[in-house]
């Protein structure tokens, strides 16, 4: 009926919608981490894409070199990459907080170049396969649903709403929100704000790495996977605004679905549709859909 009217087979439509939803899951997890880091550090973490890539590589190395399977990597890789983030914050980022925010962006950009260059040197640009831990799938009435894709959607929803819950509904989260508003006051109440900043950065980086582990079986593990993603995530962040956790999640998933639909109806624009949405949002609501003008 409806599908015959628009001339698109339902299989293709739902297949692309699912792919869009999965891309959206990664946009949501990545923009969430960026928003958490930006909230407290006032730094746009350009290294986020590289850290996502490091997460995928950490999973690959754990499997190939230590025989630790996917489910172990899901826990270990974010911790390992998160620790590298903490070291980075302690050694470098910390020294730039008193300067213009642009320097934080430039520093993390330089670090992203170093990391990507290093991995390209070591592993080549073509990418390495990572075997699917959940082969097979379910045949639904309207489409075939591969198990691993279903897992990505479920896992990312749990991660996103878990992060939202932690920040908006727990005591630790209330400290975080308070320090975002007035770090000096929170410090005066006896909370160690510098340590909180360090751990927040580590957490955000770990979130990127976790997304990377989730991505490893779905896409190839490649040194270029991070830089391809990060620019789109920047556009997502501009569209959503970084003020709201829930906003970042909704914008991420929403844009993934829009991208998937574009692949069905007008494939030529599927690479650029998110940037076009960004341009429209800038014209209509410059502060972003969930942002408040400053």
């Amino acid at each position: 009926m409806l599908f015959e009217l628009i001339g698109i087979p339902p299989q293709a439509l739902f297949g692309q919608l699912l792919l869009g939803l999965i891309n959206g899951a990664f946009y949501a997890m990545m923009s969430l981490g960026l928003a958490v880091i930006f909230g407290l550090l006032n730094v746009i973490n350009f290294t986020h894409g590289a850290q996502y890539m490091m997460g995928a590589f950490a999973a690959w190395m754990l499997l190939e070199w230590a025989g630790i399977p996917y489910w172990g990597a899901l826990v270990l890789a974010p911790i390992i990459v998160g620790v590298t983030g903490i070291v980075m914050e302690k050694l470098l980022l910390k020294r730039l907080y008193h300067l213009d925010h642009l320097y934080g962006l430039l520093l993390t950009f330089g670090l992203a170049l170093m990391i990507e260059g290093f991995f390209r040197k070591q592993f080549g640009s073509s990418g390495l396969p990572y075997s699917n831990p959940l082969p097979g799938g379910t045949r639904l009435s309207f489409m075939f649903l591969p198990n691993y894709r279903a897992w990505i959607v479920v896992a990312s929803l749990v991660i996103c709403f878990g992060t939202w819950f932690m920040i908006e509904r727990t005591k630790l989260g209330s400290y975080l929100r308070a320090a975002t508003e007035r770090p000096d006051l929170v410090q005066a109440f006896g909370i160690n704000v510098p340590r909180m900043i360090t751990l927040t950065y580590g957490f955000g980086v770990g979130l990127a790495a976790l997304a990377g582990v989730l991505a490893a079986p779905a896409y190839n593990v490649s040194p270029l996977m991070g830089s391809n993603l990060i620019i789109i995530v920047f556009a997502v962040v501009v569209i959503g605004g970084m003020g709201s956790i829930l906003g970042a999640i909704i914008t991420g998933f929403g844009l993934g679905i829009i991208e998937g639909l574009t692949k069905v109806f007008y494939p030529e624009a599927s690479n650029t549709v998110i940037f076009i949405v960004m341009a429209i949002v800038l014209m209509v609501k410059p502060a972003g859909l969930f942002g408040t003008p400053k």
Partner: peptide
Amino acid sequence: EWVLVIQGFIFVVVV
């Protein structure tokens, strides 16, 4: 590929 690493390193040092 080292060129990329070196450029990134210069970025970090200068900043």
